[in-house]
């Protein structure tokens, strides 16, 4: 029987199914969070407990930790779907695969990116981030982490067919993350010394929108190549 489904219905169905899968596999949700906190703790051990030093480093440390934990979480984006064959089904479906892949990326961001943002004030407190920078930090992560998930998805698509590809993935993706890191950290930095961070925030939003526009197509092409 042929299912008559519109693209938006298919998109919502994919979103719904992935959210339910994520809800049932909670370790995928907690591991990147734990990693995020641990990286921040490592920095504190590395540079010492002096609060003036920590608060100076805080914007960079928070952003680097967020970048690394979203990188770590990326590995799960298509891994299980590739192994159980549902990724192949998704490509074979009559709907535009880029839209369905976008649904997957959105869910991935909701279950790994969003919790990261919610927990970031806790790390900011530990790192002695000045109080007036909290709002900018939250906003910069909210605007910047979608770009990380979207750009990272292309790398995951390219390496989906390779076994133990985690390290390779980071080699491919980290250079592409650098602009987001630069403007994210600089936005927080600016607001710690009382400057306006709107320029950096606009640029982060621009990066996310640009990636939203292009990466679903690139990811879908990459997955098709990986599935061969």
């Amino acid at each position: 029987m042929m299912l008559k489904q519109s693209l938006s219905q298919a998109f919502l169905a994919e979103l719904h199914a992935d959210l339910r899968l994520a809800y049932r596999n909670k370790s995928a949700l907690f591991n990147p969070l734990m990693f995020f906190i641990m990286v921040a703790v490592l920095f504190a051990f590395g540079v010492g407990p002096e609060s003036t030093v920590l608060s100076k480093l805080a914007p960079g440390v928070i952003w680097v930790a967020a970048l690394l934990s979203s990188l770590l979480a990326l590995d799960h984006l298509f891994r299980e779907d590739y192994e159980n064959g549902s990724l192949e089904q998704l490509i074979l479906s009559p709907h535009a695969s880029s839209a369905l892949i976008l649904a997957k990326i959105i869910v991935h961001w909701l279950v790994t990116g969003l919790p990261l943002i919610l927990i970031s004030p806790f790390i900011a407190m530990m790192m002695q981030l000045p109080g007036q920078a909290y709002g900018t930090m939250l906003l910069s992560l909210l605007l910047g982490t979608p770009a990380l998930s979207l750009i990272g998805a292309v790398g995951v698509g390219l390496t989906a067919g390779i076994k133990r590809s985690g390290l390779l993935l980071s080699l491919l993706v980290i250079p592409l993350f650098i602009p987001v890191l630069i403007f994210g950290a600089s936005a927080v930095q600016a607001s710690t010394i009382g400057l306006s961070a709107s320029g950096q925030l606009y640029l982060l939003a621009a990066f996310s929108l640009l990636s939203l526009l292009f990466t679903p197509f690139a990811t879908s092409a990459a997955i098709k190549i990986s599935l061969n």
């Binding site: 292309v154 390219l158 390496t159 590809s165 390779l168 080699l171 491919l172 690139a218 990459a222 190549i225």
Partner: peptide
């Protein structure tokens, strides 16, 4: 690294092509 990691030659170069374009 990507092109060398993929055993199948044609898949490797097409994956590399996407990466180069990105």
């Amino acid at each position: 690294a990507l092109v060398n990691a993929i055993a199948d030659r044609r898949t490797g170069s097409r994956a590399g092509a996407v990466l180069a374009l990105v």
